[in-house]
């Protein structure tokens, strides 16, 4: 019976533990989130902590940054002559500089002049591949070197993904300038994380399984960077038993067949987006070699029905594969 007295300190300890659990839950920093239709997708911003203005005002300001860029690209494909690039808005010039750089890095596997081919492809359920002759004619109008060699000729540019990344970067910088240190900005999968989580841990970003809808294949722990994924499951149709998806090889005009998804981590969302496309077309072997010479760039390549995953060196310790659910 004297052991009953021992239960008093046990009860007190449990009481104190319980109070600390409740207190820690209430002390968790509040998040302010908002979303908007921008750049033909849903853009979401989640913001923690305090800055120079209140969080909702900061989010509104960040969305306005995105709207400015959206207004330049909302028609989708852009017709441009190389000789008139200098007269274009600075956002377009910045995007083309980056596109030029990624074209060279990926040996043409990313090419902003793919617009003539892009517009031949539709991805509704009952779509079919374009006729070979149409593709051949369109391909003759693709090639960044050709655009530079024929400066007065208009080329159709498809830089929608990079433009979305550029807009996400602009929103992120706006939040940073307003003094915020912890945020997630997401525009249709072009993701940028600011700093670390409010608890000081890295952000944990889950990667979708490319062949099992609704399932996740793994996650990466990241901080203060952009994350972009190119996946063949995002927009596609099945025709005669074969998958035709939206990540086109600029050299053939056909969907690239090397991977099922590539997730790129990079210092900016514009770069991550361009590289996600370029590395997908390049494939895992050549893609991994490229990541080794790019500062701050890491990648996760997934192929073979999700059974094979290749990681760049810098992400090896920060990626974990999830088990079957």
């Amino acid at each position: 019976m004297r052991h009953l007295r021992l239960l008093i300190p046990v009860g007190l300890i449990l009481l104190l533990l319980g109070i600390s659990v409740i207190s820690s839950r209430r002390e968790r920093p509040q998040v302010v989130s908002d979303s908007a239709i921008l750049m033909d997708t849903i853009a979401e911003i989640s913001l923690w902590g305090k800055g120079e203005v209140d969080a909702q005002a900061a989010i509104d300001s960040a969305f306005n940054s995105v709207r400015q860029i959206d207004s330049l690209f909302h028609h989708g494909l852009v017709s441009l002559r190389w000789q008139s690039l200098a007269q274009e808005p600075r956002e377009m010039r910045a995007i083309m500089r980056l596109a030029d750089s990624v074209y060279n890095l990926t040996s043409g596997c990313f090419d902003p002049t793919i617009g003539s081919v892009s517009r031949l492809w539709q991805f509704d359920e009952h779509a079919t591949p374009p006729e070979p002759e149409s593709l051949r004619v369109a391909l003759s109008l693709v090639g960044l070197p050709k655009m530079k060699q024929q400066p007065s000729k208009p080329f159709l540019l498809d830089v929608r993904g990079v433009a979305k990344g550029y807009a996400v970067d602009a929103a992120t910088e706006k939040l940073r300038k307003l003094g915020f240190t912890s945020a997630i900005i997401n525009a249709g999968g072009d993701l940028r994380v600011l700093g670390r989580r409010p608890d000081g841990k890295p952000w944990r970003i889950a990667i979708r399984h490319p062949r099992r809808p609704g399932d996740l294949i793994g996650y990466v722990d990241v901080e203060d960077c952009a994350v972009a994924t190119s996946g063949d499951y995002e927009r596609f149709f099945i025709y005669q038993g074969k998958r035709y998806h939206h990540i086109l090889d600029p050299r053939s005009g056909m969907p690239a067949r090397t991977c099922e998804s590539v997730t790129v981590m990079a210092p900016s969302a514009a770069l991550a987006d361009a590289l996600a496309t370029g590395l997908f077309v390049l494939g895992p072997q050549a893609g991994l070699r490229l990541t080794q010479v790019l500062d701050g760039v890491e990648a996760v390549f997934i192929y073979a029905e999700g059974d094979s995953i290749k990681l760049s060196r810098g992400i090896e310790g920060r990626f974990r594969r999830l088990g079957d659910d």
Binding site: L7, I8, V10, G11, L14, L15, G18, I19
Partner: peptide
């Protein structure tokens, strides 16, 4: 005594689990 002990343990368990 028993009521106090039971109450302490009960509240503590509830807060830890449900909190």
């Amino acid at each position: 005594d028993l009521v106090v002990i039971a109450t302490l343990i009960g509240i503590g368990l509830y807060l830890v689990v449900d909190g």
